[in-house]
Simulated scan of single mutants.
Amino acid sequence: MSKITSEDLSNAIETLDPNNLEVIGDDTEVFKGSELDSAADETPALGGDDFMHTDDFRRLFVDFVMVDTLVSMRWLDRKWHKVVEEKLIELEDEPFGEIIVHGGNDISVSEAYAREERMKQVTKVVFLLNITKVGDHACSWASNLVVVDIPEGITSIGIGSFAGCSSLKETTFPKSLTSIGNHSFEGCLNLEQVDLLHTNIQQLGRQAFRDCKSLREMKIPDSLQTFGTDVFANCSKLVPSNIGTTSEVVAYLRSIQ
């Protein structure tokens, strides 16, 4: 997938100028064989450098995480807005299947709880290009997610990004990673190993791996100097119960790797 250029964006705006859509009625279905349908397939979507064009509009609409980016697209306050609204209603009850992580998808705690049941259907995470952060609560409660491969270029994993992903068993981290936020992997009950040796990690947030009860191996590099409180609380297979303070935990982990 190639990167969108400024020329591409300029062409997209010109092609999809809302002022030139007078032939499109409010009830027109633009995604099925119309000229606008073809333009949509061939034109990069707008909404930020991180928002890359995809032909899979169905996936894009089902993933409600993308709504904030879609609404920022320049033409949606006119005739496209109704089209998007109708598509969202049409696909409202369809399963997520996969979640799309993009550059602006911080989710509040209340929003994360509100979509908890739908997130149980997620089995795959798709990372869009040119993003540097996994948003806060972006993938929380995806309890059927088993494997996550976080791509190079990601520097931070947000608050609660993978919290409650109880089936998560394998996660790979990029060299570019510098921080893991508070509660990021809390409650990942099946996560057994975490290898950060090849990363540039500098900070582990508060309770980042709390209640990871299967975690038995944690490899940390010398670059990691900042540890939040209770990072490994209730990780009895990793840290013996008689080791309590943060400094003791860190010293113990460094001694056994």
Rank of each mutant, 00 (worst) to 15 (best):
N242W: 12
E248P: 04
K32I: 14
S6K: 13
A142C: 15
L191C: 09
P174R: 00
K120P: 13
K175V: 15
I24E: 08
D27I: 09
Q257I: 15
E14F: 06
E29Q: 14
D195I: 05
L215C: 08
E94W: 04
G135P: 12
E248L: 00
D56Y: 04
W80E: 08
L191P: 11
E35F: 02
S255P: 05
M119N: 14
E29G: 13
G164I: 03
H183I: 10
N242P: 11
S247L: 07
W80M: 12
F51P: 02
K175H: 09
G135H: 08
S223Q: 02
D149V: 11
M66P: 07
L70C: 09
L9G: 07
I157A: 01
I13K: 14
K32G: 08
F61V: 15
G25Y: 01
T226E: 10
I157R: 00
Y252I: 13
E29F: 06
S214M: 11
C188F: 08
V122W: 01
S241Y: 04
F173T: 10
L197P: 00
D68Y: 03
C235E: 04
S143T: 15
S223K: 01
G205D: 06
D49M: 02
A114W: 02
M73R: 11
R78M: 06
K124D: 15
D195C: 08
M119Q: 12
C165A: 12
M73G: 12
V239K: 01
D230R: 03
V83Y: 03
V148N: 02
W75C: 14
L70F: 11
G33V: 10
I157P: 05
V109P: 03
T123L: 02
N182T: 12
N234Q: 15
S34C: 07
K87G: 01
D230G: 04
R58T: 15
G181A: 09
P174H: 02
V194H: 00
